[in-house]
Write a protein that binds this DNA or RNA. Structure first.
Lengths: 199, 199
DNA sequence: AGCCCTAATGAACACTCGTTCACAATATAA
DNA sequence: TTATATTGTGAACGAGTGTTCATTAGGGCT
């Protein structure tokens, strides 16, 4: 019958159900129904429910945000650091607002403490790349003397924690108005943050 | 046989299992075994699993932090605002580090998006009281001219978001060394925050 | 003493769960 | 076209799920 299609459909449907009901709350039969197949067919592609879960984790672990967030046109804004930070944050929020990212972060928040998730899921680890990007940015800003002399690592943590917190507010509803509200909040955060660190 | 004891034991055991495996991952039989009773006895005290869950929510909803955090001896520190904020934050972290609070916030993070939790569980709502306390504090500080003129509500959000984020790092392990590490992190956060807002 | 009421029991209910298996249908390669 | 490997089906498995119920045990009351 159909081929590679089904395997990806299983992954998509699983991420959807896992993020809605949690790992143990989602069932193979629900997933199979969503894919349009009997539950036994699932096991032609994955040998267990846990393997599906781990495959989702693997997929998101290899994803990178740097190329998506730090495009050339954005780096041009570096001459105006506040404007740069605002664009940077806005782009990050938009990225986090994509359906897959929303589902994954829900899964991350839900399963990070359970037996199945605690081996590989951690918010801190998930933010590692973002933090190192920010650390680099603030390091450069400090080098050019546009901000006060503050440990770039601390700056990165302060900057990203608030963004991540705002992000969780995005997750509660699918209301499209919400994203405007979130962007305004992010904008205020960047302004406050910038006023606290500018030289 | 025994009386009121069992009802509270059910609540305690349920919070423990819910916070470890999630609502759907925890079973009535596990809970009953932990309490030391057969599963059918549970239904003499609660009419369903969902009612146990709601009872837990009710208990934590009526809890108040103001009296625990804002004691008189702490308010004496208000003459030194930075010192006050450090003590305030440290006391908050200690409160959040208590076993019950740790379990509840895990439950909150896990179930906030599921069908069972989405009706009553929200991080934002859970932080409402803390935010209003902070808003009041920063409002007073602004009135006395010890900090810059910034919207107290924004200050409250910026201050608490980082604390809440640090809190989640507390949840991952029961390592008692962790709490020292967290306190150092909180201390640095308060210093950074204070330097950004002081007049 | 007897009575009531709460609480605990153990068996059973009707499901749902993840997973397996023999088998059939299809797509691909020869 | 035939052979083969892949992907699907339907039924079944043992175990676990939340919940109900008739029955029993025990403490507090008159």
């Amino acid at each position: 019958m159909k081929q590679q299609n089904t395997k990806q459909k299983i992954l998509d449907a699983s991420l959807d159900f896992f993020s809605k009901h949690g790992y143990s709350g989602a069932s193979i039969r629900q997933i199979a129904r969503e894919v349009g197949v009997r539950e036994s067919a699932i096991y032609n592609h994955y040998k267990s429910k846990e393997e599906i879960f781990n495959s989702i984790l693997d997929e998101f672990k290899t994803r990178t945000i740097t190329t998506k967030i730090l495009s050339d046109d954005l780096l041009d804004d570096l001459v105006n650091p506040e404007k740069f930070l605002k664009h940077f944050a806005a782009r990050l929020i938009d990225h986090w607002n994509s359906p897959d990212e929303r589902k994954f972060i829900r899964l991350l928040l839900m399963e990070q403490f359970t037996k199945i998730g605690s081996r590989e899921l951690s918010v801190t680890e998930h933010l590692t790349e973002l933090r190192s990007i920010c650390k680099m940015i603030f390091g450069e800003m400090a080098k050019h003397g546009v901000i006060k002399e503050i440990d770039p690592e601390l700056l990165a943590e302060e900057f990203t924690a608030q963004l991540f917190f705002i992000r969780t507010e995005l997750l509660s509803s699918d209301n499209p108005e919400k994203i405007k509200f979130v962007h305004e909040k992010v904008s205020r955060h960047v302004e406050f943050f910038w006023n606290g660190i500018k030289a």
